[in-house]
């Protein structure tokens, strides 16, 4: 009887420990986000005061968001720029890496492995070190200070990882499925679309999430390659907000900007996380 009681106590203690540690860890992660969110609902004057308590004591207000909306040429221009750059980057990256990954996975051609290693090895070059040549190339192409120009840069940066991901995803699809589709009369493109694409969707989701997050948050290349204020993306605009106007920094606007930038990333991740985990581990185990 007492042994049973001891076992129960031990289990209860283990469960408590588990939950307390989990709770503390998640609080650590949630705290900064919650803090930002609470500050973003303070009034401008309150947001400028010492930060404790973190919640608005003078009542919730959307004043910070309104300030942010009127910043520069208007927040929706910047958000639109960011969104179109990120979306275009995702579409182009997914399209190219899908075809390239399929090719590397399934076709035999001379220097295949050398080419693959070459593509992957470009990851090792820090892109900051080639910003000047990139700038010159874009200028020569007449794409400097344009959104398509920055999309091209982002696609180039994400392709090595994306091709690697997609090749792994295609490698994980049994070749016999493709054979069956060929016997059924599917052409290469029909097979890719109707049979292979649904099977590598986790890989596509992973590539899309990475491409979106990276291009949505990218700052340095956007700062250097975009000079026209109307073409700024959100990170560049946020840097301008943070550095303040006439020596004052609107902390409420900064925090509301943080909220604004986080929302699509969070939404996309929640939407695709089911695929994302599968994509990263595809082919790891049978």
């Amino acid at each position: 009887m007492s042994r049973k009681a001891a076992a129960t106590r031990r289990r209860a203690w283990a469960a408590t420990r588990y939950h307390v540690i989990g709770l503390v860890t998640s609080l650590l992660f949630i705290a900064p986000i919650a803090w930002s969110m609470l500050v973003s609902f303070k009034s401008t004057t309150e947001a400028a005061r010492p930060p404790l308590p973190p919640w608005p004591v003078e009542g919730f207000t959307t004043q910070s968001y309104e300030n942010l909306a009127q910043y520069g040429v208007g927040i929706w221009t910047y958000a639109g720029n960011s969104l179109s750059v990120a979306a275009a980057t995702v579409v182009v990256t997914v399209f190219i890496s899908l075809l390239a990954g399929y090719g590397f996975s399934r076709f035999q051609f001379p220097l295949k492995n050398a080419l693959f290693v070459l593509i992957i090895s470009t990851v090792m070059i820090p892109f900051q070190s080639i910003l000047t040549p990139l700038f010159l190339i874009l200028t020569r192409l007449g794409l400097q200070n344009t959104l398509p120009g920055i999309v091209l840069i982002y696609v180039t940066l994400h392709l090595p990882f994306s091709i690697f991901m997609m090749r792994n995803a295609f490698d994980a699809v049994p070749k016999e499925i493709e054979d069956a589709a060929r016997v059924d009369g599917a052409s290469v493109f029909l097979m890719l679309r109707r049979v292979m694409l649904p099977l590598v969707l986790p890989g596509v989701a992973t590539v899309a999430i990475f491409a979106f997050l990276a291009s949505w948050n990218e700052f340095l290349a956007a700062l250097i390659l975009l000079t026209d204020q109307r073409k700024y993306t959100l990170p560049v605009m946020m840097a301008a907000v943070r550095s303040g106007q006439f020596g004052t920094i609107d902390w409420g606007a900064v925090q509301s900007g943080v909220m604004l930038m986080m929302a699509p990333c969070l939404g996309l991740f929640l939407l695709l996380q089911r695929y994302y985990i599968r994509g990263l581990t595809a082919g790891a185990v049978k």
């Binding site: 499925i177 069956a180 589709a181 016997v183 649904p198 099977l199």
Partner: peptide
């Protein structure tokens, strides 16, 4: 293969996992 008048059954079945049985047969 599709023009040879053959049909093949594979060891690993090679069904299309994302399609229903009906869609598999109809593909």
């Amino acid at each position: 293969p599709a023009k040879r008048g053959i049909a093949m059954v594979f060891q690993s079945y090679a069904l299309y996992p994302h399609m229903s049985v009906r869609e598999n047969l109809a593909f």
